[in-house]
Write a protein that binds this DNA or RNA. Structure first.
Lengths: 230, 230
DNA sequence: GTCATATAATGACTAACAGTCATAAAATAC
DNA sequence: GTATTTTATGACTGTTAGTCATTATATGAC
């Protein structure tokens, strides 16, 4: 059984006897707090300077610990980013869940539009998290972060996509959309609108296309949704 | 007037008198050859190891020169990549020009499909160049490469997009497509299909969408082209 | 050919930064 | 109060992009 890195601090040598001491709870709490403080410092520094410019020394300084301490709580700079990414994905996930609005009786198309709009909102309102996501989509993270962490990012990412899948399934059931592989079609839609954000995120590409985020994004959304209905 | 970096080697101190010597031509040729050799070495190394893993020392060794020499011909590792990128963009540009096939009487839709197919072909047949393009779309290249080089990458990139713009304009003229801003619409289409390639280029994202390149790419193409016609 | 000058090449060096680990400090147990 | 375990530290290592004083080579004048 593998355990998360942060849980291993007090478990370097697994004790044969499971002694319960009064201080144990407090210790664990402190460990988590420390970890959270480092993560918060990393959030500050990464947001302010961007992942690549930011240094682990800066994170340590901001967290008021030594650099070595940072590495007691996280395996690598990339691992820290991954945990921030999970935060971002949680936030995005919540917004998407709200956009889908399970309890309402929205049409499939309305839901798709709301999901797309929520994604654009996230891009607009959480530019820092979005930037980190883009940074993650670059480097050699698969090698730099533990498998299980990589896996949970994959899962969290897929969770958001599920709402798109559900919307398309609903559209097919309601007879609003032609029959198709909902999962694959959702992927296409997502790839397209995400592509718009990828491009506007890069100065060169934005110059190249020479249009505002909203124009491009909504244009792509319209094209694909119309294509879906056709 | 600014001159390219590689032209400055024999011009560190601008001579007042423009003497023409018999050796001049050969020297210039040798300089260009040297430069080309370094670029070829970089192509090998970057293709084999990827931009981030590759080191300038490796490039120098492959080119059989000292590291300092590499920096006589290129300002930075990023600048070398930029020049390789220009090669890639040239190749892509040619394929797109051919796909558009100016002399033919293809319909706008046919042309768009051919352009998209050519882009996918490029992704498939020149994965190394495509990888470098993705690498470029990441880092802090705007700062690391000279403005004029950055500008020429922008221009070369836009050149390919022009064929999409032309196709859409033709579609409007032929009455096959509804009136729209051709440039912006071309950007949307491009953002969408490019988005598909961006996603499949990343292992995490490909896992997430769980489908083959062709399926996803052609799906996005179909969606957007259908949306365009609707 | 030989020397003076201009040009090109070299590789040891610097700086920056991720990550390590022997040592120190603090907490806990007894 | 002492021993033991846990946590923290920061000097150190390894790697790599980029520099620059020094060396080598080519050219031109005589």
């Amino acid at each position: 059984m593998t355990v998360s890195h942060y849980m291993t601090i007090s478990q370097k040598k697994a004790p044969q006897t499971e002694k319960v001491s009064p201080a144990k709870g407090r210790r664990e709490r402190q460990t988590l707090e420390r970890r959270e403080a480092i993560l918060a410092a990393a959030r500050d520094v990464f947001f302010k300077r961007g992942f690549h410019r930011a240094t682990v020394d800066e994170v340590a300084e901001e967290a008021e610990v030594a650099k070595g301490t940072v590495y007691l709580y996280f395996e690598s700079k990339e691992t820290i980013l991954s945990h921030l990414l999970l935060e971002g994905l949680d936030a995005l996930g919540e917004q998407l869940t709200e956009a889908f609005n399970e309890k309402s009786s929205f049409s499939a198309e309305k839901r798709l539009r709301r999901l797309c709009a929520a994604y654009l909102d996230f891009y607009t309102n959480e530019p820092d998290y979005f930037r980190l996501m883009m940074a993650f989509d670059r480097g050699q993270f698969q090698e730099a972060v533990p498998k299980e962490l990589y896996q949970s990012i994959l899962e969290k990412s897929s969770l958001g996509l599920q709402w798109v899948v559900k919307s398309i399934q609903q559209g097919i059931e309601d007879g609003d959309l032609a029959k198709c592989n909902a999962k694959k079609t959702a992927g296409m839609l997502w790839a397209a609108v995400n592509g718009a954000l990828v491009i506007v995120s890069h100065p060169l590409r934005r110059e190249m296309l020479d249009q505002e985020v909203e124009t491009l994004y909504n244009g792509v959304m319209e094209l694909t949704i119309r294509g879906l209905k056709a």
